[in-house]
Design a protein around this nucleic acid. Structure first.
Lengths: 192, 192, 192, 192
DNA sequence: CAGTAAACGAGACGGTACGTCCCGTCTTATG
DNA sequence: CATAAGACGGGACGTACCGTCTCGTTTACTG
């Protein structure tokens, strides 16, 4: 029967090749720099095939984007501060060195007008923030933070300055900045 | 003499019509959604003329963007907190209601690869933040903030959460959030 | 196999439509009056497609021109004079009534500067003169003309006055003129 | 009064500069290769001024063309044959070496559709042929040619082969060809 | 010698064409 | 039935030219 049709490995191979090339262009030039023709040329997969697997350029971009920035594991040192510091330092490092952050603005831009992309980005960001939320939640349960602490507010307090510095101020953050930010965020959730 | 004479108003009229239409498209679809042909069609200005005034589509976009978000006047109530609250509330309001914030991500995206656009954006953002910087500097001089306060850090502490909520979390901020953020930022600069 | 398969008739249809419209414009306004955009508009074939089949406007013109003035069959009445008269009369008729002769000057003009067009025109004219050459050659073999007759000289003697009258003198030739010209040409090749 | 207004030499100077540059472009690229903008650039005369003196590009071209190929003086050796030979040899020489013959096809092409250009060309050609007509007429008066000789037919018989060889056959004519052609033309007008 | 009118340069303007690149649809032949 | 190959219509890009226009300056003749 071969109902699922996965027996023929071609589909997987095509999709993989297309996504790989799409990802490559994505990191080079952002969402707007991805050309279906170019993807077809460089991946060796025919344009027809691409449009068979993804209904539109947009869908392909969504698919490729949603695989970006694989999930960090949440550290568990027993201290919110240490955990958050580890996570924040890693994110700060990536924000200025990895390829994928340069794609974020174009995704956010597209999300501004395309609900599907907005959904994808929400999920993507949700995934990326998961370790932060987990670490904060654990800290609250351990009593390090006030029981009425709103997890997202703490996460926001940690992440927002990093993103801001990456894209609005152009200055790269150093360890001191990350430390101060994390301390600041925690203190807010500890104060009476 | 009067060689440079602008007495022929055609240039002004053309430029104005083009910039207006460009701005319109900009707020509708971001940087990537602006088409020179479309601008020509809707503005009644010939494509040739557009290219006579701006050497490239990019230059036109830069010009149009740099006129966005006119400068807020800096309030001076005698209290940093009140001043910052007023400014932050206004910005928060605009972030979710005005047309131009939806263009920001596309600008930031373009800036990621185009140095000219990066420069324009730096200047634009500089301009938009000026009142904040002024208000904070005044507070520091009045002794409301520690003398070693770094102005930009305070501004970052106020703005970052607003931007983060606008584009990463999709939740609109309320007055309570703005208050908390401003208080938080000020407290950091007051603590011993 | 059949790799090259022309089974998809679209190419043929596109090419035909484009060439037809090009020919139409050609006869109306000469080489210089053919506009690719106009051809695209009137033929219903997209400009992109036109440039897919011809690398440049020039190539399209060359292609369209080289199909002009289909080959006359060479008559064979057994007499050079009768044969030549028939051919020359037909040419004279066409020179003043058909559409394509009006294109010749623009081709000759272009050939003055563009070697590709010069080649095309040489071949085109070669084709148009073929029946004349054949008829003269046969007459020489039959002994009607001296054995050392240079075929091209006879053809020139017949054609040159017709062309001259068409474009330099504006007077249309009549049968008497054609007769005199042909007789004259033949006599030159018969005299001792 | 100063009605004629020619006292101001600027008009003459402008016209001369424009015509010179036009002529230069004309011989380089034919009628179609003349660009008013380019003429303005290279002549130092403003486009406005050009259009002040000539109502259209076409008019400028007509003006420039009509000054081409200054009038040959008609030789008078006392023999039609010698006179014609001199003239024909000179023309043959020019056809392959001078600059202006390369413009003729584009003029003829334009004449095909533009009556004004047709008139200009008729007059131009008339002027160029004048010496030939004069020489033949004198020969007829002297009795060298039959009294019922049609002048234009003799001129045609001499010129047509030269033009034909220049533009249809690409082979340059030699002295022998010119001699044969002239002899041939004269003989036709002598025969009973 | 001041005033006027023509000629001029500089260049803005709307419009059409050029040839290229991309998008998303389509048609066909091959595995 | 997935695929490669590629034709197709459509839209945008940035450049060149055409002929019209507006403006301020120079030049020469006038009163």
């Amino acid at each position: 029967m071969a109902v699922a049709g996965n027996s023929d490995g071609r589909v997987e191979r095509s999709k993989a090749a297309v996504l790989a090339e799409t990802y490559r262009q994505l990191t080079l030039s952002g969402l707007g720099g991805v050309s279906v023709d170019e993807v077809a040329r460089n991946s060796g997969v025919a344009k027809t095939t691409i449009y068979r697997h993804w209904p539109s350029r947009s869908a392909l971009l969504i698919d490729a984007c949603s695989r970006m920035g694989g999930p960090q594991p949440a550290p568990d040192t027993g201290s919110v501060r240490t955990d958050l510091l580890a996570l924040a330092t890693a994110v700060a490092e990536q924000l200025w060195t990895a390829a994928w952050p340069s794609v974020l603005p174009s995704i956010i831009d597209a999300a501004e007008r395309d609900p599907d992309i907005a959904d994808m980005f929400a999920q993507l960001h949700q995934g990326n923030m998961a370790p932060f939320r987990e670490v904060v939640a654990r800290g609250r349960e351990r009593g390090e933070l006030r029981p009425d602490t709103v997890v997202d507010d703490v996460v926001t307090a940690v992440m927002a300055p990093l993103f801001y510095r990456r894209w609005f101020a152009k200055e790269r953050v150093d360890d001191a900045f990350v430390h101060a930010t994390v301390d600041h965020a925690i203190r807010s959730a500890q104060q009476t």
